[in-house]
């Protein structure tokens, strides 16, 4: 089970923080296909946030295919499948890249430094 941690007052809305943490846990292998997520009610209580906020995060993850909801049993990590068309996938990728690159630019990173950091992080995440 993943340990969620949210911080109010940051520049990411709380529901987005929950979405980010689920995605990160799947990438890092902390959550595997078929693993259950906590209930909306339980997680909302644990994080001391509005239950609609958690429900919204889970709904977004179900919509994009990261999680699947099983009738009456809760939400589980879904098998990876492409729910987006090729062009929509490209659009989302480019959107995510823009945000990332803007951050890197603000930190004054060179292209080499960025590429190196991405490669080493990928190695780390895939356990190389």
């Amino acid at each position: 089970m993943i340990e969620f941690k949210i911080t109010p007052g940051g520049n990411r809305p709380i529901y987005q923080q929950v979405v980010d943490q689920v995605r990160a846990a799947i990438v890092s292998g902390e959550l595997s296909i078929g693993d259950p997520l906590p209930s909306v009610r339980g997680l909302a209580q644990q994080l001391v946030v509005n239950h609609n906020t958690v429900a919204k995060a889970f709904a977004e993850l179900v919509r994009d295919g990261t999680l699947e909801s099983r009738q009456g049993r809760g939400v589980f990590v879904a098998k990876r499948r492409n729910v987006f068309s090729a062009s929509e996938r490209k659009r989302r990728m480019s959107q995510a890249l823009d945000v990332f690159l803007a951050e890197m630019h603000a930190l004054d990173c060179s292209a080499d430094q960025i590429q190196e950091a991405v490669a080493s992080r990928l190695d780390q995440l895939t356990g190389k």
């Binding site: 009610r41 001391v48 509005n50 239950h51």
Partner: peptide, 30 residues
């Protein structure tokens, strides 16, 4: 905040809260 969230979780309950504490707003508000 915990007390109010417990109240809000019950079906169909409405809360209107005036406050200056924006961290609490983030936790509480729709």
């Amino acid at each position: 905040v915990e007390g109010l969230l417990a109240f809000a979780r019950r079906e169909g309950r409405t809360v209107l809260i005036s406050t200056h504490l924006l961290d609490d707003v983030e936790r509480l508000a729709d």
